[in-house]
């Protein structure tokens, strides 16, 4: 039931912005002040968190090796899974961040009656993750058209490809569908997979609902409440926001304010939540370090001054036994007095 509160919270946010934006004079709050505050919180929070991480040193080099180390020249080195140079590490990180390599690894072997052993992968989580993240990325890129005038070519290309199916009018963006699908699948997984449900926290559901709210309002705006929405005003506002000359030309529909408010909440929430995995994935010491610890010495800035129990102390304690058993010693036994 941990999803009840986050769901209520998102509904409350929707109501706040809906009712709030209806109050005359509040457009400026929801259209300008809140977005600025959210962006400021996001940027400051994000930087703070990254600096906070960076302030702690990395005392030890602890990559997780997932393949053959670099060793003898005739043994095939797995450069991507046990990288030993910086460029190999970059390649490994690329696969991790862009293709979600580790989730892809989720293979399983099945033994069927027979007995016959087959391998197949259990890649659902990978698929849902990819679906969600890439849809989100494309949607963010597409929205850049609102802030930039003229709209840069690459963004037009993204937009063109995203709507290549040419379904309906206005044409359907594929990512709108895949984002919602990805969200539903990720949410469904948290509900249905009992293990995952057991370990999920309220703050795992909240971003899912929030992003769902954002997607839903966006889709409503584009496809269903289009007539209420004044795109020209929105574009003016957006360009105004980035050029620090915000103007609200005419009355823009509430649905827009709800959408904008939820996005603001997401931005402000981002740095204080698990969503920071966006930054953290780059800094994970088990992935972003080379498996070269025997080749190059890694320095620990706080390496404590700890000495071993000394050989001299050891020999002092056991000298007699050592001499009697022909083990070489540094200092001979004192000659006996009698």
């Amino acid at each position: 039931m941990k999803y009840i509160f986050p769901m209520a919270a998102v509904i409350a946010l929707v109501l706040i912005s809906w009712i709030g934006s209806k109050i005359p004079g509040m457009e400026y709050l929801f259209g300008v002040l809140v977005p600025y505050a959210a962006i400021a919180t996001f940027i400051i929070g994000f930087c703070y968190r990254v600096v906070h991480w960076a302030k702690s040193p990395v005392p030890f080099k602890i990559p997780t090796t997932c393949g053959q180390q670099y060793s003898l020249p005739w043994i095939k080195h797995d450069k991507l899974e046990a990288p030993h140079t910086t460029s190999q590490v970059v390649a490994r990180m690329f696969l991790e961040i862009v293709l979600f390599r580790s989730l892809w690894r989720n293979t399983k072997a099945e033994i069927h009656d027979g007995p016959k052993l087959t391998y197949e992968s259990s890649k659902w989580l990978w698929l849902f993750g990819i679906l969600f993240h890439y849809s989100f990325l494309v949607i963010v890129l597409r929205h850049m058209r609102l802030f930039l005038d003229p709209v840069p070519g690459p963004i037009l290309v993204v937009e063109y490809i995203d709507s290549i199916l040419q379904i309906g009018a206005p044409t359907l963006y594929m990512t709108d569908v895949t984002l919602v699908l990805g969200l539903l699948l990720l949410f469904g997984r948290r509900l249905i997979n009992r293990q995952v449900r057991y370990l999920s926290l309220a703050n795992d559901y909240f971003p899912l609902f929030l992003i769902f709210g954002i997607a839903a309002t966006g889709i409503l705006m584009r496809f269903f409440l289009r007539t209420d929405v004044d795109i020209v005003s929105i574009k003016r506002l957006a360009v105004g926001l980035v050029t620090f000359q915000p103007v609200i030309l005419s009355e823009i529909s509430s649905i827009f304010y709800i959408h904008l408010f939820l996005v603001s909440v997401l931005l402000a929430y981002f740095p204080y939540s698990k969503l920071m995995h966006l930054g953290g994935v780059f800094l994970s010491p088990t992935r972003n370090m080379a498996n070269d610890t025997r080749i190059r010495r890694h320095i620990n800035p706080w390496n404590p001054d700890i000495k071993p129990h000394s050989y001299a102390g050891y020999e002092d304690e056991f000298r007699e036994f050592m001499v009697n058993n022909d083990i070489p010693v540094e200092k001979e036994l004192p000659s006996k007095a009698d």
């Binding site: 399983k108 072997a109 099945e110 033994i111 009992r194 293990q195």
Partner: peptide
């Protein structure tokens, strides 16, 4: 206690108890 995985996975190697 967490029987779900034990029931769900048919994988003999990944799920020795259940299988």
């Amino acid at each position: 206690t967490s029987s779900d995985f034990f029931k769900r996975s048919q994988d003999h190697i990944a799920n020795p108890v259940g299988a």
